[in-house]
């Protein structure tokens, strides 16, 4: 055991001070190098305003604060794209729970729904992003392993059927359970929504979803100004920021005003049926009562509000 104490002033002033000087230079250089290394962050900070950084969770905003946030988002949209857009914050209609069904005997896999979703919801043009994927499936099997989304031949092909998959708006949504910051939740009308201004982009929900329904903004979406759909909703189709999650919201900016979703209107085969599950006289209830419907991956217990049937 040594009693040597290098910090005592008597233990040689010069080496310590020279060393201290070297350390000081080293620290300065290191800090400078670190500042230079992380300088690309400055580009990002110019894009994220202080108001956006400080913004509270959607559910914690008062009416006035929401209006203020929406005003800001509209102003930012105008500034960034030069396009005048209207962002609204439609509330769920009381007494409504949405259900969706697809007639797989009619669907021929033409993909018009995929494209309609792409245009309606201001998706990234570079990746043909859409909330819908259509699988070409082997007739006589529900095994997705035998499916394929990249088919580009004339449809319908011999011995195939077509399975469009989008968010199933589960009643027991695994994506909502796993979110660490409650950035995604299930609304009164059954729609699972995302607060794009609250999501931290951890992508746990994307890992948890059994239906490949979630999409991540790996970069800021590219939508030419003239193609932007200016009729937007805060929780739905406003142009998403970079680095956050998004998903099918049953076109809530349309459906909460009584309109049909864009994918349904675009379907040339009439395979899509949408409506209010709480209305016993609705089309969707008739389908559930009269067709042999099934849900995808029922064994996982996700309880989808999205149904399929053959007829």
């Amino acid at each position: 055991m040594s009693d040597k104490n290098p910090s005592s002033p008597a233990a040689g002033d010069r080496p310590v001070s020279r060393r201290t000087l070297a350390k000081g230079i080293g620290t300065t250089l290191g800090l400078g190098a670190f500042a230079a290394a992380v300088s690309p962050l400055m580009r990002r900070t110019s894009e994220v305003s202080a108001a956006e950084f400080m913004q509270q969770h959607y559910k914690d905003l008062s009416e006035d604060e929401r209006a203020e946030v929406i005003r800001r988002l509209e102003a930012e949209a105008l500034e960034q794209s030069g396009r005048e857009v209207t962002i609204r914050d439609q509330a769920p209609i009381p007494g409504t729970k949405f259900g969706y069904a697809i007639n797989l005997s009619l669907c021929n896999g033409n993909g018009k729904c995929v494209e309609a979703c792409h245009r309606e919801n201001n998706h990234d043009r570079d990746t043909n992003q859409s909330y819908i994927r259509v699988l070409e499936m082997q007739r006589g099997s529900m095994d997705m392993e035998k499916g394929n989304t990249t088919y580009d031949h004339t449809v319908p092909a011999e011995d195939k059927f077509y399975l469009p998959v989008q968010c199933q708006q589960c009643d027991n949504p695994p994506c909502v359970d796993v979110c660490p910051v409650e950035a995604t939740w299930k609304e009164q009308d059954g729609i699972v929504v995302v607060d794009y201004n609250w999501c931290i982009g951890c992508r746990y929900c994307e890992a948890a979803c059994p239906y490949h329904a979630r999409r991540f903004n790996w970069k800021a979406p590219n939508v030419p100004a003239e193609e932007i759909n200016p009729d937007q909703g805060y929780l739905s189709n406003r142009v998403r920021p970079q680095g956050v999650m998004e998903k099918c919201h049953f076109c809530l900016h349309r459906t909460r005003e009584g309109k049909l979703p864009a994918c349904l209107e675009a379907c040339p085969t009439g395979a899509r049926i949408f409506g209010n599950l709480l209305d016993p006289d609705s089309d969707i209830r008739w389908v559930l009562a009269n067709k042999q419907v099934l849900v995808l991956k029922e064994e996982l217990g996700t309880v989808p509000s999205f149904f399929y049937f053959f007829d």
Partner: peptide, 9 residues
């Protein structure tokens, strides 16, 4: 994280 600036959430 896609949005480390929102870490405080």
């Amino acid at each position: 994280l896609g949005r480390p600036d929102r870490f405080w959430h």
